[in-house]
Each structure stands twice: as structure tokens, then as C-alpha cells.
């Protein structure tokens, strides 16, 4: 194309790990100065002048290639944080991860790239990774299973960031011999773990098409919920009561999903 030397290119990626990694692959494939290219998630409302917009179709092969390179060339902690940042529910993530990767692969920086927090892209990555990491920890803490009549454990969650895979990995390690099912209602994703087998993810649309039935809770479920509610009440010390502190530690948005805050 003529005039690409002066023009900026914006690659529009799908909001998924595969989409953004493919975007990074395509950005390198353009063989242009990286400051002329940026990555973006979703459509732009305000189109910019002198800019070409290109859609990137996610391709597993390309994403995997990028992933392999990152694994080889980055510190383990940095590699982990980059992927946590990709899970964040924030549109800045594609550009920030892309620019951080460019800097990391340029070889200009020794040691951990994410320690250089004076750089804007790096800082954004660290911030997003931290946010997604916190959300993951919150899910490990506040997720509540209830037992269904067929013995399956079911949990409903509503995380801001797409942390369901990490959450499921945690519970698969913890409850290897349980059949459990976690539904992320924000991202419309199911995680299914059959006892003693590998777990897998499923898009919500697929599951609903297959079967639409409501599950009943098991006979003892109500009993244990009630016991736990009582426990949470009696463990609190009246003369130290501090609802504000409780609110800081356990924000309201998590409470609808937790049995101890559900009034019977």
C-alpha cells in the first residue's frame, strides 16, 4: 500500500486471549515501526484521521506461536502477569500488553520487564494484572457451592474480569473427586469438572440450547447453609462491631452470591 510509512494502523482484536495474541502476531507481521501500530478491542466510536483500521480474525496457531515466544523470552512472573492482564475486563489491555511485549522483546531491558513501572504501558499491565489477580483471589474466597439433589456442586459467580479458568483450576485441585459446575453470569461461561477427570469450559449459549432444566437443591443443603449462617453470626464479637470494616473487606457486590448474606 502506498503511503503506509506515514499512516497509523489500528488493529481491531476480538476481546479474548486468542484474539489479542493474534493481534500481536499480525502487528509483527506488518514489519512496520511499532509506534505506528496500536491494538484495540472492539469498534471505535470516533474514527481518527490518517489511520487505517484492520480487523484481526483470531487464529489459534498464531496465538500459540506468540504464547511460545513469550514463555521463552519473559520471566515466569512477567509471563504470568501478562496473561492475568489479558483476563482483565478493561479495554486498555490489548494496547498495553502489546507495547510491553514489544519493549520486552526488543532486548533493551535486562531482568524483569514489569519492574520498570515508570513506563506507561508496563504500568497499565501491572495495574490490570493486579486487578484481575485480586478478582481471582476474591472468587477463591467468596464463591459458594451448593449441593444439588444429584450430588453435583453448583456455584454462581459474577466476576468483573474473566478469571473463570483460573478459579476452576483452583477448585479442580482442591476438590478432585467432586462433580462441580461454576457459572460465570457476567461472561456467560460454564466451567464443568467431572469427578476425577479434566475440567473444561463451555459457552453459556451452547449449554442452554442443549437442555434447560432447573436443578433442585439436595435435602441436607438447607441444613448446612443454616448452620453456616448461624456460625457467621455467633463468631462475631458484639463489642467490636464495625460494619464499615466489614464493607471494606467484603464489598456489597459479592454478597448476593454468598449464602451467609442471603436472608432465608
Amino acid at each position: 500500500m502506498e503511503g503506509t510509512g506515514t499512516e497509523n494502523i489500528i488493529l481491531i482484536c476480538e476481546d479474548s486471549m486468542e484474539g489479542i495474541l493474534t493481534g500481536i502476531y499480525e502487528a509483527y507481521a506488518l514489519r512496520m515501526p511499532h509506534d505506528k501500530i496500536s491494538l484495540q478491542i472492539g469498534e471505535e466510536a470516533n474514527f481518527r484521521l490518517f489511520t487505517t483500521y484492520r480487523k484481526v480474525v483470531p487464529e489459534a496457531v498464531k496465538a500459540e506461536k506468540v504464547m511460545r515466544t513469550l514463555k521463552q523470552r519473559f520471566w515466569e512472573k512477567d509471563y504470568h502477569d501478562l496473561f492475568m492482564a489479558l483476563a482483565a475486563g478493561d479495554n486498555r489491555k490489548a494496547e498495553a500488553v502489546y507495547k510491553t511485549v514489544v519493549w520486552g522483546l526488543s532486548g533493551k531491558c535486562k531482568g524483569s520487564i514489569l519492574a520498570h513501572m515508570t513506563d506507561d504501558a508496563v504500568r497499565t499491565v501491572v495495574e490490570l494484572a493486579r486487578r484481575a489477580g485480586n478478582e481471582l483471589q476474591r472468587m477463591r474466597e467468596f464463591l459458594r457451592f451448593s449441593e444439588m439433589e444429584n450430588g453435583i456442586l453448583y456455584a454462581l459467580i459474577g466476576p468483573k474480569d474473566n478469571v473463570l479458568p483460573m478459579v476452576t483450576a483452583h477448585f479442580a485441585d482442591r476438590l478432585p473427586m467432586e462433580n462441580f459446575l461454576i457459572f460465570d453470569e457476567v461472561h456467560n461461561l460454564y466451567a464443568i469438572h467431572p469427578a476425577g477427570k479434566e475440567w473444561f469450559l463451555m459457552s453459556g449459549n451452547v449449554v442452554e440450547d442443549k437442555e434447560d432444566r432447573t436443578m433442585e437443591m439436595s435435602a441436607t443443603e438447607e441444613y448446612y447453609q443454616e448452620l453456616f449462617r448461624g456460625f457467621c453470626h455467633s463468631i462475631s464479637i458484639e463489642s467490636r462491631k464495625n460494619l464499615k470494616l466489614q464493607m471494606n473487606m467484603l464489598p456489597l457486590r459479592f454478597r448476593p452470591y454468598m449464602v451467609e448474606f442471603q436472608k432465608k
Partner: peptide, 25 residues
């Protein structure tokens, strides 16, 4: 986890809830 029994531990610990006095459960 050992792939068979229930349970694992994380070095950082996990708080599962917070009671009305703001202490972790």
C-alpha cells in the same frame, strides 16, 4: 491437592467471609 483427597493449601491463606466486626472468617 493430591488428586484424590479433598483439600489443598495456599501460602497466602484465604479468607472466606468477614463477620460483622470486620474480622475474617
Amino acid at each position: 491437592g493430591n488428586g484424590r483427597d479433598m483439600g489443598n493449601c495456599l501460602a497466602g491463606g484465604i479468607c472466606h467471609s468477614f463477620s460483622a466486626d470486620g474480622r475474617c472468617i
